[in-house]
Design a binder for these strands. Structure first.
Length: 878
RNA sequence: GGGUGCAUAGCUCAGUGGUAGAGCGCCGCCCUUACAAGGCGGAUGUCGGCGGUUCGAACCCGUCUGCACCCACCA
């Protein structure tokens, strides 16, 4: 590794030609990642005396693949942890995966379906064994993708929500909650997915506007009849009442009476319930307590029977002609039957309304009465809200807090039981005489005739909620737990604020004696396509990050994502943008290559300010500003700004100007006394620091270049740069003047149609400016030739206090120049008028702060100068 | 029905009171010996509409319009 670390000597022909002219990610990524892992850089030592910095990975679903959203999340987490590691923290990026109960089970069931089998053919045990086998393959894929991305995770600590330790954690907390009455079993209306055949929680239901039909039905006869409306006509078979508002005069005569329910031989009561909105529809509501959550509540209030008319497949079980029909078939059949009886009032009407769908399979949810396990969330949610309210936990960006509170403050009890096979089986045993025993991790389940374990498993988010401490060994009081809990930051998408973040807060605070699971929640947005559209399989705009990494390298993908990552805001990304980042990586590569070819070095102390030229002092002044800026943005999770600041500093300042200005020094033509030695050292310094600053976001290309440039061991364990405090405003101004001069003359050249490479005889009068030292550099950048004998200027440009006289050999296009100058003059005159207007305004002078007035004065002076300069130039034109 | 946010260059977005910015795209000229995945130069905006506050508004206030998202047990 040290062969190519000797900075080559200037002028040597054996300069490091071993660096190819283009950066090829495939040549370095795998090699570097292997090296990092082998050397254990990413492992975290719980026994270390260093201050801890811990982030847990939002565990990817084990059955899945990493998509761009993961790539974003991992880029941000990796960036944060790499920087902190460089800053000397004991850094843990905890890896792991989630068993993703329902999603994984569905995926494996689909697989089985292809073989013509169902999970019931295998039986529970064999099915679960099969999922485990599949987990081994699929999980390996995800790990591979993470390595490709460069994720600096502590692989030795890899965890899985279903592994033994985490299962113990689940059992432990379940038992505690159960014993404290915070977990209970109750029969209620739940969201039932008739395809997945399980209950799901409220947040697993996605509401969509669906087209349905609203049917108005007449119940009862004559005076005693009432019209109700429904979009789910089949549920009328389970109606056990009609409800009206207590104060509704239209129905007072009916309250308490029985009316006939069509299609059945039953009569049902009319009840008065304040829940009914008299303004809505007819002001009368059919009540189906077993199939609608509202009706369930009304039924409870009035002691109504709960009549279940469908089975778990949403097939009608009620006897009669509808038995055996699916709910949708039954819907039209019921409407037809009612119509035949003249019960349908007016025409049915198309009706767009919000309908719940299973977030896993899209099937329409069927509210269903059933016995389930619940977490009583009120006390837990209260604590979770308070931790943010009192500032123990901070949410970034803070606007997202309101969403968090909205949910935490209005949370209903959490249905945690799932009628699935893949997941943590609920540790409760039922006895022959109706006993119920909750079994802790180290306890033997009750033995004997008639005992059996609950068949339901837990909601997958139950174990995810323990993630920040279960991964650290809880319930054991491990060294890791002591060191890395609470985690420093939770980096995740705002879409799982409710699913996951709020629940980690609840369980973390509960299990860890009031210590929240993390200090800060940093929320990122969703990755979208280049037009800002959501990526979805059905729309066909989903991108596999691996494809882009193959084509442009991991750094390019990472940099693109980071550059778009404004806190909490969605991130559009297109392939063009990844290309642009790849170009940036290549630019860094070549700038470093240039530096190496010219003997840039990091050895030896940095020369003192007095030994350096203004160019050197300028770039170092800027460098230190950028270090400080980078820190500020990182500490505020402003990844877009970090990336943007570094991009512009590196490209626009270092590569475009410092490197260009140094060329004349290396060419040995710098007459202004710039020392090549000093320049080599400063260039080495600037690149060294810039590569360090970029490393968290672009780990591969920076590592490869930095080790070559400095001979250092690795950027992963290198020190993070510190702002030395060095600033040189005078040098910054001086270089700004050089840039202005060069740019303006270039513009003139371009306007005159001069070939960029064409050398033009010229004199450069820098008297009266402080730019004397830059003469050679300016000449070289502007392709100016020394003016020989008999030089005669055809164009003279006063710029930035200097004068450039050029011999264009008669090629000058005076008209074009006159036009341009006139345009500039107009702009300058407008500026003068504007600034003069302000300065002539009493109120402005009286009320504006001094620095603003001063600025306007400066602008006016500049405008005046410009005007006289341009007039001079115009006057010189023939 | 509530809540939050957004409307700025062709596209995607920064910019919270003092001369309108970036990336990509576009136009022109160049293979100038680190890089054509490059260099240099250029064009482009009534900062969604209307009012108000202010010496001064993309920015603060009101209002209108159009989007987006979240929450909610509207038959």
């Amino acid at each position: 590794m040290t062969e190519n670390t000797q900075p080559p000597t200037h002028g040597s022909d054996s300069a490091p030609a071993d660096l190819p002219t283009q950066y090829t990610p495939a040549d370095v990524e795998e090699r570097l990642y292997e090296r990092w892992v082998e050397r254990g850089y990413f492992e975290a030592d719980a026994g270390s005396a260093k201050e801890p910095y811990a982030i847990v990975i939002p565990p990817p679903n084990v059955y899945g693949n990493l998509h761009l959203g993961h790539a974003l999340e991992h880029t941000l987490i990796d960036g944060l942890t790499r920087r902190k590691r460089m800053q000397g923290y004991e850094t843990l990026w905890q890896p792991g995966m989630d068993h993703a109960g329902i999603a994984t089970q569905n995926a494996v069931e689909r697989q089985l379906a292809k073989e013509g089998k169902s999970r019931h053919d295998l039986g529970r045990e064999a099915f679960v064994a099969r999922v485990w086998r599949w987990k081994a393959e699929s999980g390996g894929q995800i790990a591979g993708q993470m390595r490709r991305l460069g994720d600096g995770v502590a692989w030795s600590r890899d965890r899985f929500t279903m592994d033994e330790g985490l299962s113990r954690a689940v059992q432990t907390i379940f038992k505690r909650l159960y014993e404290e009455g915070l977990i209970y079993r109750a029969e209620r209306i739940i969201n039932w997915c008739p395809r997945c055949l399980t209950a799901i929680s409220d947040i697993e239901v996605e509401y969509q506007e669906d087209d349905g039909e609203l049917v108005s039905l007449r119940y009862g006869e004559g005076e005693d009849s009432v019209v109700v409306a429904t979009t789910r006509a089949e549920t009328m078979l389970g109606d056990t009442a009609v409800a009206v508002h207590p104060d509704d005069p239209r129905y007072t005569h009916l309250v308490g009476r029985q009316i006939a329910l069509p299609l059945t031989d039953r009569t049902i009561p009319v009840v008065a319930d304040p829940h009914v909105d008299p303004e809505f529809g007819t002001g009368a509501v059919k009540v189906t307590p077993a199939h609608d959550p509202n009706d369930f509540e009304i039924g409870r209030r009035h002691g109504l029977p709960q009549l279940t008319i469908m089975d778990e497949n949403a097939v009608i079980t009620a006897h009669g002609p509808f038995q055996g029909l699916d709910r949708l078939e039954a819907r039209s059949a019921v409407v037809a039957a009612l119509r035949a009886e003249g019960r349908v009032v007016a025409e049915t009407r198309p009706y767009r309304h919000s309908v719940g769908h299973c977030s896993r399979c899209g099937t329409t949810i069927e509210p269903r009465l059933s016995m389930q396990w619940w977490v009583k969330v009120a006390p837990l949610a209260k604590a979770a809200g308070d931790a943010v309210r009192d500032g123990r936990v901070t949410i970034h960006p803070k606007e997202m807090s309101s969403r968090y509170f909205e949910w935490v403050d209005n949370m209903h009890d959490w249905c945690i039981s799932r009628q699935l096979w893949w997941g943590h089986r609920i540790p409760v045993w039922y006895g022959p005489d109706g006993e119920t025993v909750c079994v802790g991790p180290d306890e033997q389940p009750p033995a004997g005739e008639g005992w059996h374990q609950e068949t339901d498993v837990l909601d997958t988010w139950f174990s995810s909620a323990l993630w920040p401490f279960s991964t650290l060994g809880w319930p054991e009081q491990t060294e890791s737990l002591a060191k890395f809990y609470p985690n420093t930051v939770m980096v995740t998408g705002y879409d799982i604020l409710f699913f996951w973040v709020a629940r980690m807060m609840m369980f973390g605070l509960y299990a860890m004696e009031g210590e929240p699971p993390f200090r800060t929640i940093a929320l990122h947005g969703m990755v979208r396509d280049q037009y800002g559209k959501k990526m979805s399989r059905s729309f066909g705009n989903v991108v596999d990050p691996l494809e882009w990494m193959d084509a442009y390298g991991a750094d390019a993908v990472r940099f693109t994502l980071a550059r778009g990552a404004n806190p909490g805001v969605d991130i559009p990304i297109g392939e063009d943008w990844v290309q642009a980042s790849r170009n940036f990586a290549n630019k860094i590569w070549n700038a470093t290559r240039f530096a190496l070819l010219n003997g840039a070095t990091v050895r030896g102390p940095l020369p003192g300010p007095e030994e350096m030229s203004a160019t050197d002092r300028w770039v170092l002044s800027r460098l230190n500003s950028v270090i400080s800026e980078t820190d500020t943005y990182y500490d505020d999770y402003q990844f877009a700004k970090v990336s943007d600041a570094l991009f512009h500093f590196a490209w626009d300042e270092v590569f475009d100007w410092y490197v260009e200005l140094s060329k004349s020094v290396f060419a040995g033509s710098a007459a202004g006394g710039r020392s090549a030695e000093v320049t080599r050292r400063v260039l080495g310094e600037v690149l060294d620091v810039t590569l360090r600053l970029l490393h968290p976001v672009m780990p591969f290309v920076t590592e490869e270049l930095w080790t070559t440039l400095t001979g250092g061991e690795s950027l992963v364990v290198a020190d993070w740069p510190r702002d030395s405090g060095f600033r040189d405003a005078a040098a910054e101004e001086e270089i700004a003047a050089v840039r202005q001069l060069v740019t303006e003359v270039r513009r003139f050249r371009a306007d005159q149609g001069l070939q960029p490479g064409q050398r033009v005889p010229a004199t450069l009068d820098l008297a009266g400016t402080s730019l004397g030292a830059h003469e050679e550099a300016i000449r070289s950048l502007l392709r100016l030739q020394p003016a020989g004998e008999g030089f005669s200027a055809t164009a003279t440009l006063p710029v930035a206090g200097a004068t450039v006289a050029l011999d264009l050999s008669g090629a000058i296009d005076f008209e074009a120049e006159r036009k341009r100058l006139q345009k500039d003059l107009a702009a300058a005159e407008k500026e003068l008028a504007q600034t003069s207007g302000k300065l002539g305004n009493e109120s402005f002078l009286a009320k504006a702060p001094d620095h603003v007035v001063e600025k306007i004065r400066t602008r006016r002076a500049a405008a005046e100068e410009d005007i006289s300069r341009i007039r001079t130039q115009l006057a010189r034109l023939p």
